[in-house]
Structures are given as C-alpha cells and as structure tokens.
Simulated assay, not measured.
Amino acid sequence: MELFGRSWAALRAAVADVADADFARPSGCAGWLVRDLVCHLVIDAQDVLITLVTPTDRAVTRDAVTYWKVVEPPTGEDPLDALIVRLAAAYGDPGLLRFHLEDVGAAAGRAAELADPGMRVETQGEVLTAGDYLAAYVMEWTLHHLDLVAQLPGIAGPPDEGLARCRWMLEEIAGTAFPADWSDANVLLVGTGRRVASAAEKAELGEIAVRLPLALG
C-alpha cells in the first residue's frame, strides 16, 4: 500500500511538471495525446475513490496479480476511450486538467492511506482486499507513468521500486521470466506492447515472444 502512494505521488508530480504545450504531444498510449492520458488518470482516481468506499462481505476472488487479465490489444474503438478523448479536449486549458487531477488524485491518495488493508472491496465484479487492490494499481500507475514520459525525456519517470514490482507482477502473469539483463522499464514496455521488440530481442525472449504483447485489462 505504501508503494501505491509513492507511485501515485510520483505520477502526479510528473504531470505537474508537463508544460502546457506538451499536453498536445503523443503519449505512449497508442492513439492518445498526453492530455488524453491525464484525463484517463482523473477517471482512474475516481475509480479508486469509488472502490475504496464499496466494501463487501463477498469472498475474495482476486489478488494483486490475478486482478490483471491478458486482453486483446486496444484498437481505439472502445466507447470509453473515445469519450476520454472528447472529454480531454473539452478542458481546453491544460491547467484545468492538471488541477482536476491533483484535486481528485490527492483525495484518492488520502483514501488509500486511510484504508484498512484487510477490508474487502468490489470492482468490475471481482472482490479483493483493499491491500491487494491498491497493490494491483501500482501496475496502472507505473505503466501510465512510462506512457506519460515516452516522448517527454525531461520529465522524471516512475520510481525504481515501482518498476521492479511491476516487472515481477508481469512475469507472474506471463508465467516466465524476461531476460535478466533487461531493465525493468524495458521489460514493461516490450512485455505490454508499448514498444516492439527488435529481432535480437525476440531471439533473447525465445518462446514468450510469440505471446507478446501481454495487454492488461
């Protein structure tokens, strides 16, 4: 749960450092500008708040790793994705979008600090402990932090401990380890399809190469 807070705070700080003009630049999410990604983070923060106030007595069905499912790579045709693009454009002033993220994001961070890690919460029809739910969200924050800085080299990237944790989670999901000499960021970028592996990298990956990307949803 502490890693959730550190990852989320680092991502919000990175957004705060993005210049207004850079909100119109492409992000690492295919088809999304930086402003679209930031708008998505606002919705993510709302989801965290909603989930943490939705306790349940149902039995746990998922943990921090099994929360994530391997899905078909996004095509850009999902209605919610299209809504996010329109909503992000409607903000107009990047400062308003930046403010909304920090306003809702700080509340989500505070709610996470106050949450009982053993409390069971429900989201998307699944039940997790609050601790596992927040641990799962480290993957969300870390991947989107990489998306944010994909074409903004002057903005700080995600914390090293978040990258390491997410690499471990992705390897658990994949059921195999990635090459040991690969950086954690490279594993996440290639593993989730944010970057296409080179021929040499595919040779290093071996059999897992044909299973990539591991798009998570």
Rank of each mutant, 00 (worst) to 15 (best):
A112D: 09
E113L: 15
E113Q: 13
L114P: 04
A115R: 11
A115Y: 12
A115T: 12
G118K: 02
M119H: 12
M119L: 13
M119F: 09
R120A: 15
V121W: 14
V121F: 13
V121K: 13
E122I: 10
E122V: 09
G125K: 05
E126V: 15
L128G: 10
L128R: 13
A130R: 05
D132T: 09
D132Y: 03
Y133C: 04
L134R: 05
A136D: 07
A136V: 10
M139D: 12
T142C: 05
L143V: 08
L143H: 12
H144P: 10
H144G: 11
H144L: 10
H144R: 11
H145K: 07
H145T: 06
H145D: 11
V149E: 11
A150E: 14
Q151G: 15
Q151K: 15
L152K: 03
P153K: 06
G154W: 07
I155M: 05
P159I: 12
P159S: 12
P159E: 10
E161N: 05
G162Q: 04
G162T: 01
A164H: 07
R165E: 15
R165S: 14
R165I: 10
C166L: 09
C166N: 09
M169Q: 11
L170V: 02
L170C: 02
L170Q: 04
E171Q: 00
E171L: 00
E172G: 12
E172Y: 12
E172P: 11
G175P: 06
T176D: 08
A177G: 10
A177M: 10
F178I: 02
F178G: 03
F178D: 02
F178S: 03
P179G: 07
A180Y: 01
A180D: 08
D181H: 13
W182N: 00
W182M: 00
A185M: 01
A185W: 00
A185K: 00
A185H: 00
N186Q: 15
V187C: 01
L189G: 07
L189P: 05
V190P: 00
G191Q: 00
G191T: 00
T192F: 02
G193L: 05
G193S: 07
R194S: 06
A197K: 07
